[in-house]
Design a protein around this nucleic acid. Structure first.
Lengths: 247, 247
DNA sequence: CGCCTTCTTGAGGGGCGTCAAGCCCAGTGG
DNA sequence: CCACTGGGCTTGACGCCCCTCAAGAAGGCG
């Protein structure tokens, strides 16, 4: 009897996974306790510092990782140095592409981040057993595609000030969404610096700076210090995303 | 004995599917002959004229469709009328999102197109039986994501002339790629008109026109008539995608 | 304090949008 | 046959938004 109890305990959810967001909203949510246990034996949690490269187009990754906290930026670089951020990833997204060749993006930490890393091979084995897990991955990919397409509209058709407003709205809705849920006033710890914002919006650092002060003078944001931004009314910010305030 | 033969024939690939590209490179390739037969009983092939809306964000589609020929454009519209094309789809892509709510894009025929349509329900049933089919869909989504990210770089960081060159290269490599395979000279039947190109590139019609003549004067393209473009050297076109020729 | 990085602000110029006119061509009807 | 029409495309003139270049302010850290 005692033994059977132990077995039950052995097959329950691993300690490290218990409070992990990836188990709730991420890919790990598709796994059975047994599969989680198998995976958790090969996982490795660690921190990655701001600006460190996580994966690049030339090298084949041996490991994948779930983002536990922080922001990851995906960038593209042209031969002459022009750069564009083509995606941002937040917890609990998975970094890496099972079964596929890497695409032509570089993944870098946009802030200090915490990840839960594991060998590519293990994940691919689990994927073969668990169609539900591929389904979760597919859902993540669809979300990223929707984000990318929203961003195409922003880059193609919006003015600089609208771009900045859209960026702030994106950050406000992706970082701790539940923390600010319902509130109208939001305080943002800006994860990225001006140069990153410029690379994300297809602008220059100077224009980013100018349009931030522009939004400040219009009382749409406050800038208590250079790494935080207060949004008094998220609704007014949302309006600024689609109305060319230069007119 | 005769009967068994018949059975074998009954369970073989349906006539309509025999030469269909979707069976080779599209989602139908994941289906067994039996599943294909089931699906083909509910399919409906027809033509959609240029500019007709295929699916829009507000209404829930009851049907999905494979593209058999032609080009489909995915567009986003702002309240004040600004528009951006956020994706192009070619044969044998699937139009529609199983299990998900539609995203905020409108799908329209960018040329006259032929499709193979079937009820959403049937496809979702087949998807439940066939993880391989979801895998194919996932692959298509990943391709679309890569395309969207390439395009983010183009919209964010390239000059007008580079955008045009990138667009021509995209079309050249997506329409009948095998037809022109290896050749250096390529003749394009332009699927879209100038306004569509502008909406795709985040430009105006006038700028598209000007940069096309700009490329013509540099001998990178020829324009025999308004709906076709000749690319004497695909390599020189590729160069034009990343070098700001205004300098 | 000195040094470095990041950010802000200003002055000037250029690329692309805006407005407007004219061309090309297919379709229609006299 | 040709005039008329309308949509799509091209070309020009002009202006504005954003980039470029440059200087200075504001922290952060030894």
């Amino acid at each position: 009897m005692d033994n059977s109890r132990k077995d039950i305990h052995n097959s329950s959810i691993p300690l490290v996974c218990l409070s992990c967001e990836a188990r709730h909203k991420g890919v790990c949510g598709a796994l059975s306790p047994e599969q989680l246990t198998k995976l958790s034996k090969h996982t490795n949690r660690f921190k990655v510092e701001n600006n460190k490269v996580i994966s690049s187009p030339d090298e084949d990754d041996k490991n994948f990782a779930n983002i536990l906290s922080g922001v990851v930026k995906l960038t593209k670089l042209m031969a002459d140095g022009r750069q564009q951020i083509v995606g941002l990833q937040f917890a609990p997204d998975l970094i890496g592409r099972p079964f596929m060749k890497n695409s032509t993006v570089t993944a870098e930490a946009a802030t200090d981040i915490n990840v839960c890393s594991f060998p590519k091979k293990i994940l691919e084995e689990l994927l073969k057993e668990s169609p539900q897990m591929e389904h979760r991955l597919h859902e993540q990919t669809l979300r990223e595609l929707d984000d990318a397409r929203d961003w195409l509209l922003t880059l193609g058709r919006k003015s600089a000030i609208e771009k900045i407003a859209s960026f702030l709205y994106l950050i406000a809705t992706h970082i701790d969404p539940e923390k600010n849920d319902g509130k109208d006033q939001i305080t943002l710890e800006m994860p990225m610096k001006r140069g990153d914002i410029a690379d994300f919006l297809g602008l220059t650092i100077e224009t980013v700076s100018r349009q931030l002060t522009n939004l400040r003078k219009r009382n749409i944001i406050e800038i208590p210090d250079r790494r935080s931004i207060v949004i008094p009314s998220i609704k007014r910010l949302k309006n600024a995303m689609e109305q060319d305030l230069s007119k």
